[in-house]
Amino acid sequence: PEAADLRALAKHLYESYLKNFPLTKAKARAILSGKTSDNAPFVVHDMKSLLEGEQFINCRQIPRQDHHRHLNVSSVQSDLQREVELRFFHSCQSRSAEAVSEVTEFAKSIPGFLNLDLNDQVTLLKYAVIEVLIIMMAPLMNKDGTLISYGQIFMTREFLKSLRKPFSDMMEPKFEFSVKFNMLELDDTDMALFFAVIILSGDRPGLLNVKPIEDLQENVLHSLELHLKMNHPDSLHLFAKVLQKMTDLRQIVSDHVHFIQLLKESEINMCLHPLLQEIMKDLY
């Protein structure tokens, strides 16, 4: 009966994951490997293609005829280039803020989460959301680039590296993490449980009532351990390897927050989305 409960928990979290997150790993991998019936993503590999594609960023559906539209941009001037980079950064922020809401809805569906002290719910989310967003990006990435805009656009890693500093340094650590993380070959059912484990971390600073959080996490950890054994019978020590990723994640998040602070100082026209500002303030 206990194993049945743990399996039911895994099923419940997977269903909530499917309900709350628009682009699953299964769909992203199908797009990246060209095995989807939909059209291939629009590729952004330089400033010209970014200008062509930017009107579709954060659109769930690209009007297909526009794929072949050509802008007459022979050389993008540097001030225009700065503007385009900043606009792109703002659209990344809006998508991130939307994803924070998705993670929040997912957290609320974890059995027992809404019974925790409200202050602790806020603290758990504040510390977990960027970690979860970084893991959510991994299935969208391969060594050459990343899907964005719900899988409608593929942006190359080289292009992201060619942006001006500090934008150019921002995504490289996420690619390095993702390439390694993807080697674990987790699927969407594994990811759903892993997200819940991350959210229910009892060691976040400022928590008021740690015990009920640890109790909830222990239950999800048991469910994850059992699920990984059944889902990946040949993958040795997978449970331990997955948990180890949580340490790497904390460093990536702390570096990310540092990047954003640098940006705030160096970019006069930069305004940070209020929700992201709230999350990053006094985070690390």
Binding site: K19, V100, S101, E105, L118, V122, K126, E278
Partner: peptide
């Protein structure tokens, strides 16, 4: 929670599926 007004609101909002 006052310094996290938006997060707080997101937590308290009932999701569309819950009516």
């Amino acid at each position: 929670t006052e310094r996290h007004k938006i997060l707080h609101r997101l937590l308290q909002d009932s999701s569309p599926a819950d009516g």
